[in-house]
Amino acid sequence: MKKTLLLTTISLMSLISFSQKKTTTSAVINFDAATPLDSLPKAVNKTVVAALNLTNGEVAFEASVKNFSFSNPMMQDHFNGENWMNSEKFPKATFKGNIKNLDKINFTKAGKYIATIEGELNIKGNVKPVSTTAQINVVGKSIATSAKFIISLADYGIELPKIAAGKVSENPSIKVTAKF
């Protein structure tokens, strides 16, 4: 009787720990809107909150818009300004989605996997469906993930002034890396 109870407890505990949502507060987003004319519009945010649910394949991240760090102060100001991200009004950018081929990924077995991800990106209050592939690298207990989104600024209500034409890409990339 005692043995059964012990076994049940152990298996329940392992189940609970397995279904736990993994989170990190140090995921990184590299934002890149550079063009051949201008290599400056690039920024990094190293304090992105990210989550990965190993059981149901839910993935999510939240980034503080103000914590994107540019090398150039003027660009950082523009990025946060009303015409661009309007970070006063929309302080965070978020993504919520799912891994579509969860059956192909074994989070408990070391190896490299490719995940198909579909979800919604919320930037400046505009929610748009997006899809991408992510690299997942399982090493021991650590899970390293990396995914890249190419977005269209116009989709999120960001209009480039004429003066920026050619200097800032209208289809910047957002590369997200997270280690769980």
Partner: peptide
């Protein structure tokens, strides 16, 4: 400044 994280149900105050 801070954002409220829905993932963590907590405030995240970030510095760069």
């Amino acid at each position: 400044g801070a954002i409220y994280s829905d993932i963590l149900s907590a405030y995240s105050i970030a510095f760069k």
